[in-house]
Design a protein around this nucleic acid. Structure first.
Length: 276
DNA sequence: AACTATACCTGCAAGC
DNA sequence: TGCTTGCAGGTATAGT
């Protein structure tokens, strides 16, 4: 998916347009996303309601409605949200469309359909829905003490640990590689061997990289665009991700690729020593 | 309990 | 040209 920065950029775009808008109607493609689209719940609780606010929690986007219901959106790997004139032509993978009272329609386009839409009736807070999720990287809870407590008994690769959203949310495959490069830590290093100083470094670097990426409008690998249809520009700042065979920007050694938990992982073998 | 492999789905690029 | 294969930003699950 879009990782945390891309979701944040989309969210910031939606905040400019959605609050105070009323949803007039809802339509869908008929295809299921990761779970079936809860059309009945959306028509019951969201249609004809006004949007109060737009928030992000982890990689979820939340629309708080005036009647205290909540619509929760997740973009999966290929999800995109955009605003279009309501009578404009639908695109091939437009799966959910909310018509607004200003002539525009919010459309969720998701090629691979790994996205998710939830609708919580009034009074059901999203809290229990997010109960299993770890903190955002920007929260104070994301601290060396917390990571030592959660990670000391783990021997799996630290990269997998950082991508586990029960530990910390929003660090996906791109930013896990980038954070570990910036921290000079080998992605396969056993989690339990990471020192307090290294955790401090990981926290600091992940926040710096994610902030920079948000400021750049996110990373566009192939098809991600923000809610205004603009691409992000962080990809030109990536130091290791998708740079296999190219020289390390710090030391000139050749960037290599390995597979961890089935995911492509990029590193500089010289800057990120196994025993480091 | 922790970890890996697999499944979900479509499109694209590379290789034959 | 056309087929097959592998791979892609996420996450839930079943299995070891």
């Amino acid at each position: 998916m879009p990782e945390l920065p891309e979701v944040e950029v989309v969210c910031q775009g939606l905040i400019k347009h959605l609050p105070d808008r009323q949803i007039l109607s809802f339509r869908q493609s008929g295809k299921s996303l990761r779970k079936p689209i809860p059309t009945a719940l959306i028509r019951r609780w969201v249609v004809e309601e006004t949007i109060l606010s737009v928030r992000r929690r982890a990689k979820f986007i939340l629309l708080d409605m005036a009647n205290a219901s909540t619509m929760i959106l997740h973009l999966g790997m290929t999800g995109r949200l955009g605003l279009f004139p309501w009578d404009s032509r639908l695109l091939v993978h437009d799966h959910a469309c909310w018509r607004l009272d200003n002539g525009l329609e919010l459309r969720l386009n998701d090629t691979r359909r790994f996205g998710l839409i939830h609708c919580l009736p009034p009074g059901l807070t999203p809290d229990h829905f997010f109960a299993e999720l770890g903190p955002d990287p920007f929260w104070e809870d994301f601290s060396p003490d917390y990571l030592i407590k959660k990670g000391s008994r783990r021997n799996g690769p630290v990269k997998n640990f950082l991508m586990d959203n029960r530990i910390v949310t929003g660090i996906g495959n791109i930013y896990a590689s980038e954070t570990l490069f910036a921290s000079a830590i080998h992605p396969a290093k056993p989690t339990g061997e990471i020192t307090r100083q290294q955790w401090r470094c990981i926290i600091q670097e992940s926040r710096r990289i994610l902030s920079d990426a948000i400021a750049c409008g996110g990373t566009t690998i192939s098809d991600y665009v923000n809610s205004s249809g603009e691409k992000g520009y962080f990809q030109v700042r990536l130091k290791v991700y998708a740079r296999e065979g190219l020289p390390c920007l710090k030391c000139g050694a050749v960037i290599t690729k390995m597979v961890l938990a089935g995911r492509a992982t990029f590193l500089c073998p010289k800057c990120q020593k196994e025993e480091g």
